[in-house]
Design a protein around this nucleic acid. Structure first.
Lengths: 197, 197
DNA sequence: TACCTTGATGTCAGTGGCTGACATCAAGGT
DNA sequence: ACCTTGATGTCAGCCACTGACATCAAGGTA
C-alpha cells in the first residue's frame, strides 16, 4: 500500500513497478468490459503483465482487488473520532468522521460510479462490500468506546452511522451531479433524527 | 421448503424423505465438529446419504445451507409492516416487525448459538449473513414505501432497524439466558433514540 | 396391463478460484 | 566475489461449482 505510492521514474528493478495498482486497474477495466463472473483471474494478470499466482500474492481473492480503499477509509474514520473534541456527542463524532471521508469520493466520482456499477451486478461483490462496511462499523464502535461511549450505544451508533452512509452514498452515486456526497449525508442524518421517535 | 414440512410415516417414494433438511442438519453438525473450511461438500452429502451434485441442487453454494431461515424472516417482517395500523409511525412499524421475529429465535436459542458460533469463525459466512440482512433491510424498506413512507426515510429506517437488530441479537446470543431477545431489542431501541441527537 | 410422463437423484467430465512448494534472478549490502 | 532479500514465475493439486446425460420409482392414462 505504501510502496505503490512511490513514484518511480526509471526502471529501478527487474520488474515494472506498481504491480498492485496495475492489477487493480486491469481488474476494474475487465470487470466493466466483460462482467465480473466472465473475467478470469488469469486474464486480469495477463492484462497487467503478470501471472495468476502473482495476483493472489497481492490480493486474497478475486473480489478483494476492488476494495483496497477500505483501509484508508478506516484510518480516516477512526482518527477523526479519536480526535473529536470531548464535548462532542458520540453522534456528532460519528457524523464528523463520516463527513471527513467525503473528499475521497468527491475527487473520483466517475471512478466510484464505475466501481459501484460492477459491484451492483454481482451478489458476491455486494457481500464483500457489506463485510468491509461492517468492518468499518466495528472499527468505528471501537473508537467510540475509546472515547468513553458504553455498549451497546457504541455499536449501535456505529452501525447506524454506517447505515446512514450507505443510504447517502446510494443517493449520491445515482443522483444528480450537483449534489455532493456531503449534502446527501447531511440530509440523511436529519431525516434519521426526525424519523427515530 | 413446503415439502420438508410434510410428515412422512412410510416410504412414500424411492428416496428417504426430507433431503433438504437432512443436508442442513448434516452441514451444521460437520461445520461445528470440523469447522466450515475443513468440511467438504462431498462429506456433507455423504453424511446425509446423498451425493455432492444433489447438495448443489438444493443449495446454491456451501454457505447457503446455513441460511434457509431468512425467507421466513422476510415474510414475517414484510407482513407485519404491511399489517401495522396506519396510525403507527414508520419507526413503530419497524420495531413491531422486528419484535414479531423474536419467538422464532427464542424457541431455538441453542440452535441459534451453534449456528452463530460457526458463522463467527468464518469471514465468508459473515459475508453471507450480511447479505441476508441487507436483503431483509431492502424488503423492509419496500414494505415501508408501500405504507407511504418516502425515500430516503424508508431505506434509512429499514437499515437502522436492521442495525438495531444486529446489535440486540449479538447481546442476546452472548448474554445471560435470563434476558430475552425482545428485552435486548427494546433496550437497543431506547438507547438508539436517546443517542441520536 | 402396458405405456408415458414427471421429478429427484446419480454419474461424469470439465472450468476456474485458490494454495503450497520450489525455482529464478536482479538489487543491494558485506 | 559472495550472500541475502524479495518479488516473481512454474507446476501440481484440491475443491467449489456446473452442464449434460442417465436412472428409475411413482402416478396417471389408454
Amino acid at each position: 500500500m505504501s510502496a505503490t505510492a512511490i513514484a518511480y521514474d526509471r526502471a529501478m528493478s527487474r520488474w515494472e513497478p506498481n504491480a498492485r495498482v496495475r492489477l487493480e486497474e486491469a481488474a476494474l477495466k475487465l470487470y466493466v468490459e466483460r462482467g465480473f463472473e466472465q473475467t478470469t483471474v488469469a486474464e486480469i494478470a495477463k492484462e497487467a503483465g503478470l501471472t495468476e499466482r502473482t495476483f493472489f500474492r497481492h490480493f486474497a481473492d478475486k473480489r478483494e482487488v476492488l476494495f483496497s480503499g477500505s483501509a484508508v477509509l478506516q484510518e480516516i474514520l477512526v482518527s477523526h473520532v479519536a480526535g473529536s473534541p470531548g464535548s462532542a456527542t458520540p453522534m456528532a463524532a460519528v457524523a464528523g468522521a463520516l463527513g471527513a471521508t467525503c473528499p475521497l469520493f468527491e475527487e473520483r466520482r466517475e471512478h466510484a460510479r464505475h466501481r459501484q456499477s460492477v459491484i451492483d451486478t454481482s451478489p458476491v461483490l455486494q457481500e464483500r462490500e457489506l463485510l468491509k462496511l461492517a468492518t468499518l462499523g466495528a472499527a468505528l464502535a471501537g473508537a467510540l468506546r475509546e472515547r468513553g461511549t458504553g455498549e451497546p450505544a457504541a455499536s449501535l451508533l456505529a452501525e447506524t452511522g454506517i447505515a446512514v452512509f450507505r443510504v447517502a452514498f446510494g443517493c449520491w452515486i445515482n443522483g444528480s451531479d450537483r449534489r455532493t456526497l456531503a449534502d446527501h449525508l447531511g440530509e440523511s442524518l436529519t431525516e434519521l433524527k426526525s424519523a427515530v421517535r
